[in-house]
Design a protein around this nucleic acid. Sequence first.
DNA 1: CTGTTAGCGCGTTCAG
DNA 2: CTGAACGCGCTAACAG
Lengths: 357, 357
Amino acid sequence: MANPANHPGDGSRATLAQVAARAGVSASTASLAFSGAGPVADETRERVLAAARELDYGGPDPRARSLRTGRSGIIAVVMEDRISVAFGDPVAVTLLDGIADEIGGAGYSLLLLTDSLERAEGGLRDAPMDAALLLGCSTDLDPAVRVLSQRQVPLIGVEAEPRQGLPMVDIDNRAGMRRLAEHLAGLGHERVAVITLPMDRGHARGPLTQVRQDASVAYTGLERLAGVRDVFPDAPAEVAAGSLIEEGLIAARALLDAEPALTAIVGQSDLLALGAIQAAEERGLRVPEDISVAGFDGARIDGLSRHRLTTVVQPTLEKGRAAARLALAALAGEPVENVAFTTELRIGDTTAAPRSA
Amino acid sequence: MANPANHPGDGSRATLAQVAARAGVSASTASLAFSGAGPVADETRERVLAAARELDYGGPDPRARSLRTGRSGIIAVVMEDRISVAFGDPVAVTLLDGIADEIGGAGYSLLLLTDSLERAEGGLRDAPMDAALLLGCSTDLDPAVRVLSQRQVPLIGVEAEPRQGLPMVDIDNRAGMRRLAEHLAGLGHERVAVITLPMDRGHARGPLTQVRQDASVAYTGLERLAGVRDVFPDAPAEVAAGSLIEEGLIAARALLDAEPALTAIVGQSDLLALGAIQAAEERGLRVPEDISVAGFDGARIDGLSRHRLTTVVQPTLEKGRAAARLALAALAGEPVENVAFTTELRIGDTTAAPRSA
DNA sequence: CTGTTAGCGCGTTCAG
DNA sequence: CTGAACGCGCTAACAG
């Protein structure tokens, strides 16, 4: 029944016109029968579908439809890191989940692009897409913005540095961190250090010197750092190579070598904070008795730690949804406005008054 | 300079023909100037690019190119779960990383599709793609296979039930688990239980009854179960709702209620095994002294546990790469053959002789 | 090296 | 409700 050898050009796929001819209707009628976009008599539709089955025709070609309608049904998400790194972070996964949920609900599919500078930007330049979301925490969005805006692809940023013509979803990174720092200050902490997200494209580790800081365009990381320094202006910072437990561990080890001893470590993400806790325990320090540790995100880190981490909770899923909705609005020709979410301090059991206090 | 109002139809994007006209060359020459697919005099190319800049033309439209060439440059990955669930599993992330790496290297981009049955299969039916990878461990590939093969999209399976016309990358799930079971048997274990991956689309938890087992088409889970039962034919099995630590915890709690007490639990993934360890410790059981626990995958679970889990190591990244290469081969018209990888037993410190032995 | 000629497969007018 | 004609934007042939 399927794939009969009774029509010319068999082996390659049939075309709508061929199906229409076989059904004895015009191409436009056949088109309507498939898309359901217009009125077609039931009996006519049946004939068309039957002809399609006989010719083994699998429906309108998305490529042709795409050219005709000017839409590909694809929304791209541009990340900086390779997948294994990006998705090691539950925040990124949750964000993507929100995005996928919202655009999927609107009939769009999600194209995953890595903003690698290699290969002439690969998909950034060539892939069909109706809009693109630039994922935040990125150290440098410029290349992606340049290529995509030249292509005139509508762009939406997530936690990106404010820039002309890039509507954005943001959170109050600085204020959130400031509240956390104030919490620590209130407990009596004075010697507080920060473990930051990557500060440059190379994801280099090490102390955040003034030079490095000035050279950095890592929006999220800089904002969160500023929040802590609003309260602890001299807080030293150690740069991690990614939002991973292991990176937090590495950075915290470096920080714990410092003298005089720290009383608290703030991770710019929950995973970094968990790494810091491990580093502390590795040295026989108890959390929070000997040292306080706090994070940022309020990520789902069940099972990763026995502690309830003190952290700044952000509405990650909602952030993803909102970004997706902005993209959909842009595609619908509706006005697109920036969206800002608010974070909330959640006190856990990893922060307490320092011994010396 | 950019976007001058000196050409008609401004505001919408320019077209290659317009650029060619402005540069005083033919459309085909302009096309070559952009694609670099043919010889063009340097000076001519310069004129074309200049004209493009003046018209604010961002390069050939991927949609039109796609229709013309019959290629979209997109390879889809079809997963069963929603993103937050799928990517909670480091194995899935690693697999995807391997895939993305390989297809990115070949100039393709990665479209993420969820095989949800809602919305008329959304992207499965409509999204442009040149090939699709069906990700394994799936409880039911049928719908995706049906839709995509009707569209005549080349398909590659990863750990899927063998089926006609679906080239596949597989591992020796059963043999690997059998070796693990033999290791346990060699230590003297007799009462061994299994925590399985989801067995049906609903991801229902609970004991795996014979009825449920017979009704299941969850290839990977059934294979891994069979491996254990090759050695422990009566091993009870508890079904988890996903490859997550928390699911392992839930399932293990149920198993630990059983009498007589188990001496070992085998998780069908490392995450499930970690959950089982937590469940054991929750009851004051020490691992491996009081109960042995083993997993499957050899996933990167640094920082998630103090133990070195005994597990069956599979080459996950390589599996992803191989699947991607099969897809690329299919697109290149080369013959596509099944690929099989071999697992390896890695003894950690979570398995030991049972107390009674 | 460049120009000419044809479509790729479809959706959408507009009549009837 | 259906049919005829057109062109979306581009690139593959071939000819010059």
